[in-house]
Amino acid sequence: MAAPESGDGNNGAARMVTLISSDNTRFEVEAAAASLSQTLQLTILDGGGGGGDGIPLPNVDSATLSKVLEYCIKHAPAAANGGAPNATAVDRAELERFDNEFVNIDQSVLYSLIMAAHNLEIEGLQSLVAKKVADMIKGKSPMEIRRTLGFPDPTPEEQAEMNAHMLEYGWAYE
């Protein structure tokens, strides 16, 4: 839980803000967690999101927002410690385990997360999901990448281009 007396030191009890998804679901969350989003941080610093108002997020649906907030709540304590220089190895291992589990998800959810992390400018989440997709691409041929990421079957023209690519980049196939 948040430690009220340490950290930034100006707040007493944890301040809460309300976020409203594109399908009008309201999420109440600690300001510290929501502030992992660079976009939200400015609004929250201006005093927004408190009371009955809520901050509307027209680009993020409720399923995606609840997933995003799961990430933010987990990472907020470490972020409050300035990237956690004094975090224990156990804490770091726990966050890593959480992250690995967190991105073990369906591709359409992953896609929505990439878009949301970008829109909300959540740096840690952006690199976590980008790394996940990069890992899905690693060690695969162009055809395998297409299949993994759900591309349609290549047209004859695309197939010819892929064959030409194989000749041009033979070193990558070794």
Binding site: Q126, V133, A134, I137, K138, K140, I145, G150, Y169, A172
Partner: peptide, 25 residues
Amino acid sequence: AALALLPDDLLADILTRLAPRDLAM
């Protein structure tokens, strides 16, 4: 084909994490 539809700048952010062999692929 969700991941096949990523905008260019987000795709670049993903691809920049790849080693030369995977980029060639």
